[in-house]
Design a protein around this nucleic acid. Sequence first.
DNA 1: GCCATTATGCAAGCGGACTCTTATGATGGT
DNA 2: ACCATCATAAGAGTCCGCTTGCATAATGGC
Lengths: 231, 231
Amino acid sequence: MTTTTPQGGATGRVNQKRRTHAAIVAAAVELMATGGEVTMPEVARAALVSEATAYRYFPDLASLLAEAMADTLPGPAEAFAGVADSADPAERVAAAAEYLARHVLARAGAVRAMIAATIVRPGGGPARPGLRFALIDEALRPWSDPTPGGAADDAVADADGDADGGVDPQALAELKRDLAIVMGAEALFSLIDLAGLEPEEAIAGVVRTATTLTRAALPHPPARAGRGRKG
Amino acid sequence: MTTTTPQGGATGRVNQKRRTHAAIVAAAVELMATGGEVTMPEVARAALVSEATAYRYFPDLASLLAEAMADTLPGPAEAFAGVADSADPAERVAAAAEYLARHVLARAGAVRAMIAATIVRPGGGPARPGLRFALIDEALRPWSDPTPGGAADDAVADADGDADGGVDPQALAELKRDLAIVMGAEALFSLIDLAGLEPEEAIAGVVRTATTLTRAALPHPPARAGRGRKG
DNA sequence: GCCATTATGCAAGCGGACTCTTATGATGGT
DNA sequence: ACCATCATAAGAGTCCGCTTGCATAATGGC
């Protein structure tokens, strides 16, 4: 996510810099979409730019991939397209988890490279986007904001019965932490690489686990995640 | 976990090969224990062996680290030392999760290198140990084996009330999958690197999430994971 | 103790992630 | 149109992962 331009930010040949920057990101986005591996020399070649120049704009490959990744995520809005008017957090969490998982799997090669690059640099800067956190917050908004102002208010009361907005803040924070573990690329790759699941099974797996965790956080008798809905 | 010796397995100069193999693994174990990064040249130097020789015994760094890692894990027995006579799966899962997490964190550098190496080789062989799976199976044994033959039988009946061994096999399989996501090094590093938690907080986090999932799989009214027990 | 077997060391090499230096050449204000 | 500024290209260099070929030397059966 870190972007460095030559000679600081808005000084010098701003146009050229914006052009170059855009070209590099565009090339990265395109290569990422193939799902294959993405290397810095490749991106540079595709962007008609020297490798050294690419490194002048991004401190490392992970930062470049992070920005390219973030650029292809239109924002939380799309993730909840199907459940926009639903105030059931479990449903919203499931939608977010699946949305993120499919996005990741479609760019598996790049995401794998990103994880590999960032995992060996513990303190080395915020090179990885916190995509999941924004999605989690948005998914749990019905519990965070007591009154979002739309039809959701009714839905909350409908789904929640007595305590509509009254969710224990600590329980909410813990749920967010739980979901941060599950709603990530690493979780997906764990299931695929270690557990030997097929991509679709892995998606179903993380969605199910995320749903289970969300339901478990509810103060009400939890129905377990619906199984066989995708099978 | 893959070990290749020159000229096949038990042929040729067996003693020399065993000595060399042991020296390499021992060096890796020692370097891992420092928690710092572990590279192949380093291990080779520490083992008084050329790098090429190290690669003759292990196809890649990940395999070497995997074997060294597995060698330092005395087996499932130790993990459940404190809860050996407990048949509460949630308690056993918590113990296993914490055990694994501490083991990983004590060798963070090596594990990070291992993840980095394996994440970019999706189909490239089983270079990563399934440590978690054995632990999960062992933790859930009270549910898998209706009658393990010890004092656990009574404890099961005690904790479970009516249906002692009668746990839905599918629910059990799903729980195992859930736990496979949470009880792993990646989950730990996600919390530390992305969520910004301290190591101890991260351990508490995965333990809590694992406990929550296990409790949620119980057919009975689940008490949420005890919070504040670890501070 | 000899000597064929065979593990090992050395060294070169490839590609990727970066870093740094030097020399162009495009940019854009005047 | 000029030309100082500044982004860029090119290339070498470092480190690691990993491979390969060849010469050397230890091993251990005889």
